[in-house]
Design a protein around this nucleic acid. Structure first.
Length: 578
DNA sequence: GCCGTTTTCGGCCCGACTGTTTTCAGTCG
């Protein structure tokens, strides 16, 4: 049964219904039900097709009769009258208004109904002319904030890549950590969970004297605007355009605040529910017993233990599998940042890289790697100076002579072979057979439909000479959506053929992403973390790939390039039956 | 709209801050 809409699209529609219901002034719990269902569906690793056919969909917690029916209708017909009717009530452009900080559904509803304002431009004009202050709850300050908010919405699309956020956050964090009144401190939020894109920076400190710390925080050199400054919390806008919040709590409350502000929201909700089952109320300060007395914990481990769980590392707190694992004492021993013994998929000056073989090898060796796989582009990638068979052979003899004289790192002969339109490869099997490994990637014709794209990737991964697929989904974070793809089919093909899948650690890609990596692991597929480095510095991007692996719950054994050289070569050759 | 070993109605997480108000609604996380 082919679905009329993909799961992803249905998730987006459920989210949109949630927002529309808010705009319509519906019961907030109804709104929440749609939003929760969207999240649940999104993070469920099973395919929507399976969920519907097996009848499991309606058994998922948070999806009752009404939602099940709506999802099935969407999946089978691609349409839903309830949704279309709701949509017709509000113009599309109203959604832009919701992106203004501090401007929620109620305010959007007010300007739309009272002043017929439905776009950023119209709102900006009204705010400039002082027309908004006529509305209840709006004043001069609100108008000013709206104008600044509109500017920010236009300038920064809300989220930034993890490395950029980290760059802004770490100096702030150190500034707080080193304050004499600070006892404990941490980065929280999505940064601590190592999400691939970040919206706001959340900081937490404990202290007996919060005032001085908050005062210091708002005066950090990277702060351009203070948007809030109370007795325990301050909010600022940074030069980078990001928002940063600092919360200061008493030290005995620190573990609770740390847990709370690390999130995710869904994880927190489940934690509260588990506390409740044990007769405890959990908030950002403490457990509270039914008699009103407080129960404190010295650290996060103790909080988890109190609700009957093993400690859950921040990267796993997305309310996917972590509760199931923690309950059974089966939280994976996550891949560590020093666990990679080598890496593949790096470029050199032979194609579009900035450093030559020797420079790349030296950089990898400095990171402690035992092996580095070279994989320049193949001939079809003319834009990137792709190598033809002759130039490839020349590179291999360079690698041979390097390895002969190298006492440390070993270079591996590889190729990033373009996957052509029909799934055939840019090099013949005889050429690939002489490589140590080959990564197959798509760089062109990204606009094929799902069936064609899936077939293309399946055919590529079935090629005997291929070791793994590179940046499988083709997404560029905050820039380009993944191409349409039946991921399950591609993963099944990889599993069937004993192939690996890459976790491309380039921060723009992080592809496979963590959810898909989880699915790959479930199929017994080995992942391989590669930087897709085009420079010596690029190799260090592997740390972001390790973030992805940790979020996917991968352990050392799940990642191929944690093996020392000898063992690695053995499993490498097993991917290719020559 | 969901959920139920206090269940088929009446809850649903809740605290801080802002800006508008003179006690609170809206937003955010």
């Amino acid at each position: 049964m082919p679905l009329a809409l993909e799961k992803k699209e249905i998730v987006a529609i459920l989210e949109e219904i949630g927002v529309l219901l808010e705009l319509a002034g519906e019961n907030p719990f109804k709104t929440r039900a749609y939003e929760a269902a969207a999240r649940t569906l999104e993070s469920d690793p099973r395919s929507l097709e399976d969920l519907i056919q097996s009848g499991e969909l309606g058994k998922i917690k948070g999806i009752g009769k009404a939602l099940e029916e709506k999802v099935v209708t969407l999946a089978t017909t691609g349409e839903l009258d309830y949704y279309s009717a709701l949509r017709a009530r509000f113009p599309e452009s109203l959604f832009d208004l919701l992106r203004i900080p501090g401007f929620g559904p109620k305010k959007v509803k007010a300007v739309y109904e009272k002043l017929d304002i439905a776009s950023l431009d119209a709102l900006e004009a009204a705010a400039r002319e002082g027309k908004l202050r006529a509305l209840d709850g709006f004043g001069a300050k609100t108008e000013q904030n709206i104008l600044e908010g509109i500017e920010r919405v236009r300038a920064y699309q809300g989220r930034v890549l993890l490395p950029l956020a980290e760059q802004a956050a770490v100096p702030l964090f150190e500034w707080i950590r080193d304050h004499p009144d600070t006892i404990r401190s941490s980065l929280c939020g999505s940064l601590r969970r190592r999400r691939e894109t970040i919206k706001d920076i959340d900081l937490l400190a404990s202290s007996e004297k919060p005032d001085g710390i908050l005062e210091t925080f708002v005066k950090h050199p990277s702060v351009v605007k203070v948007t809030g400054h109370g007795g325990t919390k301050a909010s600022v806008v940074l030069k980078s355009g990001m928002n940063a919040d600092l919360r200061v709590v008493a030290d005995q409350e620190f573990p609770f605040a740390l847990n709370y502000f690390t999130g995710s929201k869904e994880h927190n909700t489940e934690m509260r529910a588990r506390a409740k089952e044990r007769g405890l109320r959990l908030n950002e300060y403490a457990f509270t017993r039914e008699d009103g007395s407080r129960l404190l914990c010295k650290d996060e481990e103790e909080i988890y233990r109190t609700v009957g769980l093993e400690y859950v590392p921040p990267e796993l707190r997305e309310c996917t599998r972590e509760f199931e694992w923690a309950e059974a004492d089966k939280i994976p021993e996550l891949l560590g940042y020093g666990d990679l013994m080598g890496t593949l998929h790096c470029h050199t000056t032979a194609s579009d890289g900035a450093a030559d073989l020797e420079q790349m090898a030296a950089a990898a060796e400095a990171l402690g790697y035992q092996y580095l796989g070279i994989a320049d582009h193949s001939k079809s990638a003319a834009y990137a100076g792709g190598l033809d068979e002759k130039r490839l052979a020349r590179q291999w003899s360079e690698i041979d002579s390097f390895n002969k004289k190298s006492k440390g790192i070993r270079l591996l002969k590889g190729s990033e072979v373009d996957i052509l339109k029909d799934g055939s490869l840019d090099f013949a099997e005889e050429v690939l057979a002489d490589c140590d490994y080959a990564v197959a990637s798509i760089h062109s014709l990204l606009n094929l439909d799902e069936a064609a794209m899936t077939q293309r990737l399946v055919r590529a991964i079935e090629s005997p000479g291929i070791t793994f697929l590179g940046h499988l989904s083709g997404r560029l974070l905050l820039q380009r959506e993944p191409y349409p793809l039946n991921l399950a089919k591609v993963l099944d093909a990889a599993a069937r053929n004993g192939k690996w899948i890459e976790i491309n650690a380039n921060p723009w890609r992080l592809d496979l992403d963590w959810r898909a990596s989880m699915e790959a692991k479930e199929r017994g597929i080995l992942l391989v973390i590669n930087p897709d480095a085009h420079s010596t510095e690029g190799i260090s991007d592997n740390r972001y790939g390790i973030d992805v692996a940790r979020r996917a719950g991968l352990a050392q054994a799940d990642v191929a390039n944690t093996r020392p050289l000898k063992e690695f070569l053995k499993i490498l050759s097993a991917t290719r039956p020559h």
